[in-house]
Amino acid sequence: MAKADAWGAPEGTAFERRKARGDGLAGNTRLIAEPAYRRLLAAEPLLRRSIPALIIIFLIVIAALRVLSLMNERDEAERDVKAVLGLAAGQMANAISADPTAASSGAIDLLESTSRQGAMGRSHVLVITDSAFKIIAVSPLSTGWQGRSLDSLVLDGQPLFMFGDRAGVMDVSIGGQDWYAAVSLTRDRKNAAAVLVPQEAVFDSWRKTVSLNVTLFVLTAGVLIIILYAYFGQASRAQTADRIYLEAHQRIDMALVRGRCGLWDWDMVRGKMYWSRSMYDMLGYEPCNSMLSFGEVDDIIHPEDGDLFELANKIVEREIDHIDQVFRMRHADGQWVWMRARAQVIDPEAPEI
């Protein structure tokens, strides 16, 4: 703390030059940075209010992209399975047309061979029928379709039995479930080959992917909501802390001004000082928010009263651990002002006791 009294002798100081540069940031730094900083402060409330909307938009965009991607994957899975069914049915019909015995004695071998070549799964059903669409051979046998009429099992699939492979692969119903079915007729129309698969089995992997994506989306949304809540909670606490700090700072400044005292914060490591506004008022200088250098402060201390560099060396050498000194400082109008400085040296890196 410092207590002031007036004394004489006018002379120019570095503080007059600082006053000409203005408060806060100095020189070119201020010209470049301060406008952007002020714009940022002005835009901060708008940015704070826009954060929830931005998060919601982000989640909507992510959800829309994933839905489109998943629907595309579903369409690709459907196209692939239809292509496999059509090719397998056509291959079996061609094999029977080339060798009619394949529809009787070699039926099982034909079904197994087609299943291996087409990489069929356990859910695929391969069928060979006669001209009346009565099932001659079926794989797997566990379906229990052997000897039954295929056209009676398959609902909504009449075009398949009328036009064969020209009808393409159709959505049909078997036992109340949705299936994909492809039927191909032999050239003499005495036999038919069919390949079928439940849609549930086709999209089983896709449904697992959908479930995983939904879980990840929900977790992501939950994390963002928690972060948003924490951000606004922290912002609210920061605003409260800033308000308390400003109020306390104003009270301290008011007390210092009324007591004709000033506050110094001297950073030995960086060689910088912070002065309270009351310190500037006592010496008649324009207050500024930037730190002062050793040289700037030493320039306005009377040369007969010592200098800061000598005092700093004593502190660094640990010759003293506190300051209680009377000296003169130059007022802005040229007078000398008597000051009494009292301070305690604090080592920020010292371990706590």
Rank of each mutant, 00 (worst) to 15 (best):
F58A: 13
M162R: 13
R277L: 07
A42S: 05
W336V: 03
R18Q: 08
A312H: 07
Q239Y: 04
P52L: 03
W7T: 02
W206I: 12
S149K: 15
V345I: 14
A2Q: 07
G8M: 11
V183T: 02
D305C: 06
A193R: 00
R166G: 07
M254P: 01
R122F: 09
D242V: 09
A77F: 06
I225Y: 10
A14W: 15
P45Q: 04
V269P: 01
Q146M: 15
R148P: 01
L85R: 05
V210L: 14
L160E: 02
D299Q: 15
Q344H: 11
M282R: 10
Y37M: 09
R189P: 01
A235Y: 07
S97N: 12
F309K: 12
D171T: 15
R258F: 07
K3R: 14
A93W: 00
R251A: 13
L141H: 06
P52W: 01
V223C: 13
E304G: 03
L283P: 00
E319Q: 13
Y274H: 11
A248V: 10
R187A: 11
A4Q: 05
S293Q: 07
M291R: 15
S149V: 14
A88Y: 01
S97D: 10
V125K: 01
L216F: 09
G306M: 07
I346A: 09
Q250C: 09
H249I: 02
D321M: 10
Y229W: 13
G295H: 10
R17W: 05
H322Q: 09
K272P: 01
R39A: 15
A182Q: 00
R251C: 03
T114A: 14
G118R: 10
N191P: 00
A241Y: 08
A343W: 04
V345D: 03
V169K: 00
K19C: 10
V337C: 12
W206H: 13
M162T: 15
M273Q: 06
T209R: 13
A33H: 04
A182F: 03
L150A: 05
E317H: 06
E76Q: 14
G106L: 13
Q177N: 12
I301L: 08
K272N: 07
I244M: 11
A93F: 00
D156C: 02
D204M: 13
V169W: 01
Y37H: 02
L70H: 05
Y180V: 03
R189K: 10
G12C: 01
K190A: 03
E286D: 13
L25E: 05
R38N: 06
V297D: 00
Y274V: 05
L185M: 15
L25M: 12
R328Q: 07
H302Y: 06
K19Q: 14
A167L: 09
A102I: 04
E34A: 11
S290K: 08
P287L: 00
M1V: 08
